[in-house]
Design a protein around this nucleic acid. Structure first.
Lengths: 339, 339
DNA sequence: CTGAAAGCGCTTACAG
DNA sequence: CTGAAAGCGCTTACAG
């Protein structure tokens, strides 16, 4: 049976109120009282009962982060940023993995209303775009921060500028000399797909490349779908593209494997530029050129924002846009006929 | 202000005790009372205050999993298994990422003693091998389950048989005809390294391969160290090995990139067999042959075991060994001179 | 089957 | 600066 406040108080010869003050507001108690109380705390091996504390203060000092799949490296890195920041801010982090099931997401959403957690971070990437039950949560009552997908203005969001990022990736290809650039896009209905496709088309149009020379194949963000989409692009009529812009790294890796099986060399025959900059992308042969999303920073920023919301601070902006970076590695080169 | 038990009781015209029973033990209350109480619960939008409940019952229904790095795919997949199982068993999962810092691990370890959580899962892979402060925790008092590293018999462990797994990987190479087999091992002091090296040497010795034909280079489990170790092996005197056994996938990927830069073909010139079966290993060119660790199942099993421990059930065995599988892909073939 | 009451372990006005 | 006391919102013997 661990010692409680009363035990410590008895041991120190003070009241429980004093012990509590020594623990939480040491500056208000006389040094001498403080000293003997601290000794008693130490001696008894006292550990506060967190549940009593929370019940009393009505604060949980816990936050919940809901992700579609913790085994996804993107999610995992964001979560790492959240966790590290949460720990620094004195929060404990609960993790809810929905496996993209709305039922599960709903369960987690309800936790924010049961004094279970002080706030919620919702990572909607490649998953249901809206937090189920969000309609029951009001922005002022429920501290919630959205990660990645800006869906409405109920809650603050932290993410990137997908249009500009995609445009930058494609413009890099164009500056290299490519004039036949295909895209392997994500699921058509997905917000990120639409945005990245807009950036792709903007860049292509701005440089006078006809739409016929900028074909698009859709995948579902998976490795396998990258293989299929790449094959499709290769088999279509007309001249082969000299470069492919992929909406995420997994599909890019799929495309590269497809090319490798056909002995089409990257970047000599086809250049590839991708999106995300997962850790594993340095490991491919050749290493991938890709748009680096600041995954860790997104987690940090989301947690910091949530802390602000929890404390009722005024937010400077509801949408926070973090910078991306084009990381040039070895999957891109000028087109062969030019090289 | 959300409704509390008292509000519901007033609304239903019953006592708070009855509302509590309807919530937790519906079968003990008369159907008619139950019905009107349920209506009141529904109408008021009542949500139980979890902290009060926990304080009262002295149970948190929460478990904590401590990992060295959530962004590591191995960790992330184990955590996914834990999370899914925890949710099914009615637990909420807290996640502690120690970033391999003992200080942080200590903080998390203390949580198990503060009624914060009902139990703790400690994943020690590639990190400090002992839970700091474990000496203060007794097996009977603190529900703790160790994942992967069997370090002592204070706490139950779930993991794999590293010796047998390594032996199987190397024997596969031998059966393919290889007689010069190198190893890229992990950090020398690491328990897993020692075990996998034992398996390697067992297999090699059992088939009469002289130690000189089975050189070992150590890395630190990272991609970069795999490159370095591979270069070292390639530069040593004597005939080049025809196959390499890597202690984990990341180092194998590093070795493969090193080979690719030198235009040494896998598996034609050198076969590679690895360990872990991370998701990304299907994406390499060629896809890697590797020992598949049941990462997800390890998480499931650990959580199930922890639940047993929490409920004071007798464990059948303190060490649970889960089966591994050799997944043959395209990085292995008979040695060239034989093929 | 149901209710009145105690109590889980804290924190924090309120007095002094 | 310190203590006595109330109360956070539940659950659960104990009576009836």
């Amino acid at each position: 049976m661990p010692a409680d406040l009363k035990d410590v108080a008895a041991l120190a010869g003070v009241s429980t109120a004093t012990v509590s003050r020594v623990l939480n507001n040491p500056e208000v108690v006389t040094p001498s009282t403080r000293k003997k109380t601290e000794a008693a705390i130490e001696k008894s091996g006292y550990i506060p009962n967190i549940n009593a504390k929370r019940l009393r203060t009505q604060k949980s000092r816990a936050i919940l982060v809901v992700v579609p799949d913790i085994a996804d490296p993107f999610c995992a890195t964001v979560v790492r940023g959240v966790e590290n920041t949460a720990a620094d801010l004195g929060y404990v982090m609960l993790l809810g993995d929905t496996q993209a099931e709305a039922r599960r997401a709903r369960i987690y959403a309800s936790m924010v209303r049961s004094a279970h957690v002080d706030g919620l971070l919702y990572l909607s990437i490649r998953a249901p775009y809206e937090l189920p039950g969000a309609d029951k949560l009001t922005r002022t009552e429920s501290p919630i921060v959205n990660i990645c997908n800006y869906t409405n203005d109920h809650f603050p969001t932290v993410g990137i500028d997908n249009v500009a990022a995609a445009r930058a990736a494609v413009e890099y290809l164009i500056h290299l000399g490519h004039r036949r650039i295909a895209a392997i896009a994500g699921l058509p209905q997905h917000p990120e797909t639409k945005l990245r496709l807009t950036g792709f088309r903007d860049a292509v149009a701005a440089h006078g490349i006809p739409a016929a020379n900028a074909p698009v194949a859709h995948g579902d963000f998976s490795f396998e779908s990258g293989i299929v989409a790449c094959d499709m692009l290769l088999n279509s009529v007309g001249p082969r593209p000299t470069a492919i812009f992929c909406h995420n790294d997994r599909m890019a890796l799929g495309a590269m494997q497809s090319l490798w099986r056909k002995s089409i060399q990257v970047p000599r025959d086809i250049s590839i530029v991708s999106f995300d900059n997962l850790d594993s992308v340095r490991f491919s042969c050749p290493p991938l050129t890709t748009i680096a999303q600041p995954m860790y920073d997104i987690g940090v920023c989301a947690m910091t924002t949530l802390d602000h919301v929890i404390h009722g601070k005024q937010l400077i902006s509801v949408q926070q846009v973090l910078p991306v970076e084009l990381v040039v590695r070895e999957s891109t080169a000028p087109p062969h006929s030019f090289g």
